[in-house]
């Protein structure tokens, strides 16, 4: 079972705030998911190669031809607040 501190840490990472009821609810659900994966991890996979990202075909690479930029007015339309062509956000000092 996840601890209260772990749930709070996950809240912080996801930038969400849960009330106590929700916290209890998600604590159960998330713990179930982790338990499920733990069960899967018990399967002996020695001798098997990971197929999560199997290379079945060569990745397509882009040759550099510039273009496709959006018009600034259209981009800024989506923003809650702007100033002189910039997106405006609440003051931040600490850089993550």
């Amino acid at each position: 079972m996840l601890s209260d501190d772990e749930i709070k840490h996950i809240e912080k990472l996801a930038r969400i705030r849960l009330d106590n009821d929700a916290r209890e609810k998600f604590k159960g659900q998330l713990s179930d998911i982790i338990e499920f994966v733990r069960t899967l991890q018990k399967v002996d996979t020695t001798g098997f190669e990971s197929e999560a990202r199997k290379r079945s075909f060569k990745p397509f690479l882009r040759e550099g031809r510039a273009g496709g930029e959006l018009e600034r007015d259209k981009v800024l339309e989506q923003a809650p607040d702007t100033k002189n062509g910039f997106f405006k956000v609440p003051p931040v000092i600490d850089k993550d």
Partner: peptide, 30 residues
């Protein structure tokens, strides 16, 4: 395919991919 340019007017060298808009997919530049 946006063209990087130092000192360009703010927010004029952006597209759905580098803005992380939903559904946009990255394609690696050779």
């Amino acid at each position: 395919s946006c063209k990087p340019e130092y000192g360009a007017d703010p927010n004029t060298r952006i597209c759905p991919v580098c803005m992380g808009l939903p559904g946009a997919l990255p394609v690696l530049n050779r």
